[in-house]
Amino acid sequence: MAPDKSYLPMFIAKVTGSVVATQKVAAMTGQKLLIVEPFRLDGESRKKLVTTGRTFVAVDPLGAGVGQMVLITQGSSARLTPETKEMPIDTVVIGIVDQVHVEKKCVFKSDDA
């Protein structure tokens, strides 16, 4: 059964670093790899984003930089973009976040927004 392309679980994450791997499978040649740390809404104040304490390596076809907040997707959904459909990956950057609003409050705004 083909994956349901209407369902892409997305998460907000902060780019905290990068990975350099000179030896990798051919499908990954030339791909930028980032360390990303997922964030969630602070359950107490609901006024800011806080880290989940986890990290992942993500393929970045968009050119995000360290310190930026990004949208990521994981699992089989990570291979549903045209850029990643032939790659053996589990996490991909699918957007660069400018702002996040929850309950009419801005809980994140990038320096560029």
Results as ranks from 00 to 15, higher is better:
residue 3 P to I: 15
residue 46 R to G: 00
residue 91 T to P: 04
residue 88 P to S: 06
residue 79 R to P: 11
residue 104 K to C: 04
residue 9 P to C: 07
residue 75 G to D: 06
residue 90 D to E: 10
residue 52 T to I: 09
residue 100 V to G: 10
residue 105 K to A: 05
residue 104 K to W: 08
residue 79 R to E: 15
residue 44 E to R: 11
residue 40 R to P: 00
residue 73 T to E: 08
residue 3 P to A: 07
residue 35 I to G: 01
residue 45 S to L: 01
residue 15 V to W: 14
residue 63 G to S: 03
residue 23 Q to D: 01
residue 34 L to R: 15
residue 30 G to T: 01
residue 106 C to W: 04
residue 99 Q to I: 06
residue 60 D to N: 07
residue 107 V to A: 05
residue 86 E to M: 04
residue 89 I to L: 08
residue 23 Q to P: 00
residue 107 V to G: 02
residue 44 E to S: 05
residue 29 T to H: 06
residue 69 M to S: 03
residue 19 V to L: 13
residue 25 V to S: 07
residue 84 T to C: 15
residue 19 V to Y: 08
residue 111 D to E: 05
residue 29 T to V: 05
residue 14 K to Y: 10
residue 56 F to T: 03
residue 98 D to Q: 14
residue 1 M to I: 15
residue 8 L to Q: 14
residue 63 G to T: 07
residue 101 H to K: 10
residue 92 V to P: 02
residue 67 G to P: 13
residue 43 G to Q: 15
residue 87 M to V: 01
residue 106 C to A: 06
residue 72 I to K: 12
residue 108 F to L: 04
residue 72 I to V: 11
residue 19 V to M: 12
residue 74 Q to A: 12
residue 23 Q to E: 06
residue 40 R to N: 06
residue 100 V to I: 14
residue 58 A to T: 13
residue 2 A to T: 00
residue 12 I to G: 00
residue 21 A to Q: 11
residue 26 A to G: 03
residue 1 M to G: 13
residue 102 V to F: 15
residue 99 Q to S: 10
residue 71 L to Y: 12
residue 109 K to P: 00
residue 85 K to Q: 13
residue 93 V to L: 09
residue 23 Q to L: 08
residue 65 G to Q: 11
residue 66 V to S: 06
residue 22 T to F: 00
residue 20 V to H: 15
residue 70 V to F: 02
residue 43 G to M: 14
residue 58 A to V: 10
residue 107 V to W: 11
residue 11 F to D: 01
residue 41 L to N: 05
residue 32 K to T: 12
residue 85 K to D: 04
residue 37 E to S: 15
residue 28 M to S: 02
residue 50 V to N: 09
residue 33 L to D: 03
residue 11 F to E: 10
residue 74 Q to F: 03
residue 110 S to I: 13
residue 91 T to E: 05
residue 41 L to E: 09
residue 33 L to V: 14
residue 33 L to T: 11
residue 60 D to Y: 11
residue 12 I to W: 00
residue 88 P to Y: 02
residue 35 I to Q: 10
residue 27 A to G: 02
residue 47 K to T: 14
residue 83 E to Y: 02
residue 40 R to S: 02
residue 102 V to H: 15
residue 81 T to N: 09
residue 71 L to C: 06
residue 52 T to Y: 11
residue 69 M to Q: 08
residue 60 D to K: 13
residue 22 T to I: 04
residue 60 D to C: 09
residue 112 D to F: 03
residue 10 M to E: 11
residue 37 E to F: 02
residue 40 R to M: 10
residue 63 G to M: 03
residue 22 T to E: 00
residue 24 K to D: 01
residue 12 I to K: 00
residue 11 F to L: 03
residue 33 L to Q: 03
residue 7 Y to I: 15
residue 74 Q to P: 00
residue 86 E to K: 12
residue 93 V to G: 04
residue 84 T to I: 00
residue 70 V to K: 12
residue 111 D to V: 07
residue 25 V to N: 05
residue 74 Q to E: 04
residue 7 Y to K: 12
residue 25 V to G: 02
residue 31 Q to Y: 01
residue 73 T to C: 12
residue 16 T to D: 14
residue 74 Q to Y: 10
residue 82 P to K: 13
residue 28 M to K: 01
residue 52 T to S: 12
residue 56 F to A: 11
residue 82 P to A: 11
residue 80 L to C: 05
residue 98 D to W: 08
residue 104 K to D: 10
